[in-house]
Amino acid sequence: MSYYITLHDVRKKFGKIEVLKGLSLNVKKGEIIGLFGPSGSGKSTILNLIAGLERPDGGRITLRNTTVASDNVFVSPEERNVSMVFQDLGLWPHMTVEEHLKFVSDDRRLISVVLKQLGLEKKKDRLPEELSGGERQRVSIARALTKPSDILLLDEPFSFLDLKLRERVKKTIKDYKKKNESTVVIVSHSVFDFIDLCDRVAILKDGKISKIEKPRELLLEFQKFYYRKPKR
């Protein structure tokens, strides 16, 4: 079987700290896979490596059956055609909401639809500094969803959103995935996000993938942890 996104024996160091120690991951076309693990385990790093924003110190990364990063090859992020929601949003301070989307796409109809779906229509002329945290996050998501791409990377996309908004945004993401036949990689701290969206969840530990589970299996483990009897 050929995979749409593969990471094979990928290593990444930041200074003296080795974050990824020979990580391997295969993602099928059209799959939504979650990345779960403690802070500093390398989740965002994996997304950055897939996007081409970081270069691996070893191993190989392929997208769409083409090697995009290895010892001899490196394809820049501009050429990988991925779309991404950043953990710290990465909004452009001088552009309004609408300008963010117009910068990414010329499709006015699509922009209008995305704005409506994410409840940003009335805020389309505002600058990022005039928005709340949740609104800014929605702009970051809207920007990612305006770019037609078959690989979507989401780095904690719901951290500022309330429950209702989360549901709304998740629906929008599912629509996007369906329309573009996208393969999605999502980082989150919430198990429920994985349940709602993901086909599988990869759990990171010690710089590698320790196991890959279905979201429900992960939920059961969580329940076991939370409802265990406290040690005396």
């Binding site: 996007a51 991925v82 950043f86 990465g90 770019k147």
Partner: peptide, 10 residues
């Protein structure tokens, strides 16, 4: 972060 978003959405 700004640089990353520029590179992705360029």
């Amino acid at each position: 972060s700004l640089e990353s978003s520029i590179r992705i959405f360029s």
